[in-house]
Design a binder for these strands. Structure first.
Lengths: 247, 247
DNA sequence: ATGACAAAAAATGAATGCAAAATGACGTCC
DNA sequence: GGACGTCATTTTGCATTCATTTTTTGTCAT
């Protein structure tokens, strides 16, 4: 069998304006639910490994099961939840190995972002990142964790944005969401020594960026994320203490 | 509002065997449909930009609309199709820019794979890749495009496999699918000069792999894919001749 | 009590039904 | 002859319904 499908519709507008990536979601109900449910899950409102109760969520969102289930399938494809046959959806429990893998993929994506950013970034954008860097340094000096954390995140997002690659940006956001969920439940306390290291690395990043040294920046970013991974896993290794052990 | 959701189910088996990534799909009907429909789309059975006819696909698969629509949502999330509000699904038409972005992301992922592979690859695996390399060289000498192409793909897959990162592997496969769809419709004829280049690059890849030179391999792989991108786009730049211009 | 078994209750997966929107056909008017 | 407006048909999106499966509850026997 080759093609039961005739050439129903021919290409429409061949060149759509290249402004969006994939989200026409906002309009339809299932899209709305998808966005809300994803946030709900990422923010850690349902504990790890717990089942995702269709019925209650339907009531909570005031919709029927159909659009909710559609959203669940997408979330499963994104890796946030998992679908067990005839047993519904559960929040995906990430093993230590899963986290290592995720961090490495994030490192790869940022490394790529740095490389691409070197080709396209403007001096103004670099200046903006430098500003963020100085802000972050201030937070570092004042031991302001949340401020530091936010500035840090903005820097990395700026680099990804400077890569001028919407596909990369979308993938990056997706993986970041998976990790963020873990961050929400177990909120990392950054160790002092790590801070100093991270600051030094960030200076190196800025330096390479200014010189548009693509390969070098790629390397530094990868190593930087690798160190983050080490810090995160180190922290997670400490006993979770609210996770009941199997009986 | 914090949590309408009580701790319904507590974590089940905390440590599932780490063998699978996300696919419990095989069992449920929607999962079956998802796999089949994805292949159907990737293989190019529906022309670019054409609408995806729910009704006919339902008949073709012998199912109702519900599981099919669930599969469509996932495919949309994967970027293979796009969903227009109240207008159903269409095969996503990739612009030249989209392709550039995709190739770059693939380059980034392979670059990452190379880096990680250096940490974990065994001598046997390297030997297997070397074998593929020699096979490929044979195809190259005999101007055997399909053979060359397949060996080439296997080499890259082997590198990704050697990275020991299922998350990466899954992401890689997903992006590869998007590109493959384009390959199916416009099948690339490799230019002679490109072949020689590619062979040289592959030798460099093998060399770096043998020395476990992570950064170097990362660089080479990125450049290698960048060149592939150039070749592919060059080819696509030739007039499509069956794409009707907007009236 | 504890365990096994059986029935009830609930939840899941898929099919069907229904209102709203879009698509296409046809006739009218300029 | 072509643009425009109206109406029938199709398609889409979501709700609802139905058949299974799972999970819980209740009962009984050991």
């Amino acid at each position: 069998m080759k093609s039961t499908i005739p050439d129903t519709g021919v290409p429409i507008g061949p060149s759509n304006g290249g402004e969006r990536q994939d989200n026409r979601h906002e309009a339809s109900l299932h899209g709305e639910i998808l966005l809300r449910l994803r946030d709900y899950v990422v923010e850690g409102n349902i504990p790890d490994g717990a089942r995702v109760p269709e019925r209650q969520l339907c009531e909570m969102f005031g919709i029927s099961r159909t659009p909710l289930r559609e959203a669940l399938k997408v979330l499963a494809a994104e890796g946030l939840i998992e679908l067990l046959p005839n047993r519904g959806a559960r929040i995906r429990q990430l093993s230590q190995r899963d986290l290592e893998e995720l961090f490495d993929v994030m490192a790869g994506l940022e490394s790529l972002a740095g490389r691409l950013a070197c080709e396209a970034i403007t001096d103004d954008e670099i200046a903006a990142i430098e500003q963020l860097h100085y802000d972050m340094y201030g937070y570092y000096l004042h031991r302001d964790m949340p401020g530091y954390f936010q500035a840090n995140q903005r820097i990395h997002e700026s680099i990804v944005a400077a890569a001028r690659n919407e596909t990369l940006k979308t993938a990056y956001a997706s993986f970041a969401g998976r990790i963020r969920r873990v961050r929400y439940s177990a909120n990392f306390a950054r160790k002092r020594r790590r801070w100093a290291e991270a600051m030094r690395e960030h200076e190196a990043i800025l330096d390479a960026l200014r010189r548009r040294a693509a390969s070098e920046l790629s390397d530094i970013l990868f190593q930087h994320l690798r160190n983050k991974r080490a810090a995160a896993l180190e922290h997670l290794a400490e006993p979770p203490e609210d996770t009941p052990a199997a009986p």
